[in-house]
Design a protein around this nucleic acid. Sequence first.
DNA 1: CGCGGCTTTGATGTTCATCAAGTAAAGTGG
DNA 2: CCACTTTACTTGATGAACATCAAAGCCGCG
Lengths: 232, 232
Amino acid sequence: MSSNVCPGTTCSVCGFRSEVFQTLSTDQLEQLTRRKSIRAARKGDIIAKQGSQIMGFIFLRTGLAKLTRLNAEGRQQIVGIATPNDFVGLLSVFSSDSYHFSIIALEDSEYCCVDLELVKELVVKEGKFAMSLLEKISRVSDLLLQNRLNIDLLQLRGRVAYIICYFANEVYRQRSFNLPISRREIAELIDMRVENVVRILSEFRRDGIITIEGTAINILKPEKLRWIKEHG
Amino acid sequence: MSSNVCPGTTCSVCGFRSEVFQTLSTDQLEQLTRRKSIRAARKGDIIAKQGSQIMGFIFLRTGLAKLTRLNAEGRQQIVGIATPNDFVGLLSVFSSDSYHFSIIALEDSEYCCVDLELVKELVVKEGKFAMSLLEKISRVSDLLLQNRLNIDLLQLRGRVAYIICYFANEVYRQRSFNLPISRREIAELIDMRVENVVRILSEFRRDGIITIEGTAINILKPEKLRWIKEHG
DNA sequence: CGCGGCTTTGATGTTCATCAAGTAAAGTGG
DNA sequence: CCACTTTACTTGATGAACATCAAAGCCGCG
């Protein structure tokens, strides 16, 4: 939970600006700069906690984070993965006053926390800003839902293939990378059990589809993996 | 697909107004009235089709509709149920130019189709409108996601209980009602097979938890059903 | 009437969760 | 730094949950 405030960077040079804040005036950007804080989170740090009051509009600048949720039964579930420039407060921000998910850093990350009241003020004052926010929020949330719907129809083999492809294609854009999450977390992400994640990964390795050593994954047969993710 | 245009009603007396359009001026509401159409859909009619171009901002005035989706494999999936005052274009409206889901009437329904360009214009022009739209869109989408996440963690018995409770509590607000969807559609809604839906419904009946005859459901033991939905 | 779609039940095999047990890796405290 | 504990990973065996296949009844519709 220890998140350090970083030396301020002005919002006018922020990567997020090009996507959402592009429509704001220099003046408004300065206002934004004054009422935001950039923070650093170490791997494992809790950026926001499910159920706690929403303090600000949060988006990820660098790094990687998971959105998690504890259901009524006490079972942990990973709702999705946030990559740089995703806002992670998600829909809750505008429909509730408390976070519906926890946000936890998977890698050392930087995130920006903008005063929520200011964002709301800007929505009301600056129509174009409101519009681009709507677009961005829609895109991120829609993608989250699509991923989940896709996974729901797959059997376990297909789910594991899906998530490997996800990291390869959407996150790291490389055939070979280090899994940022544990076997347990993979299980929580695609609604299955640790043992079966392990078993299926071993199976993929045996079949020469991937190599995997610890967290290091290398995809040997992308076509085959894609086939499994689609038909498995 | 045959949807008849209804005799115009002015937007100033629309049920949706109180939720989202409340902030618009009389003038703007008249503008809205001119650039919208109220349509009637009969049970089974397709209100919008997955993949087709988004023509307008659609919301349901009366009746009931399902949001469905055909995945890459050709398997049908029901994403959610829309009740009156839900906008059914959902997130796609602002993040894509084609519908990601089909919208199909489950009961005779009336829906309103507002010129999307006008809505976007109003978002830009009227900050308060933008804000209430953001809130509404967030609430509906968030709920959709929550429901799906809940269902994902349940076994089949729990899912069936969940969906019965859903209709009883959220849609009809009565312990006894007519299921608006077939057994097959229930299966598509909670990711299971028709046979198992039937089997579990019969089981609930045998155990005296519900009565069910055709589409007519009556919940006899709400507490027991709730227990199953939470622990099943 | 006959056909097709929806519903229902039974039988069977597959997929998956659970239990158990063991290894490896990573903290923790003396 | 080493014994100790904990946590992550891995494999096997077993039973429960579920999909699939098969068959029959029901109903509406041309």
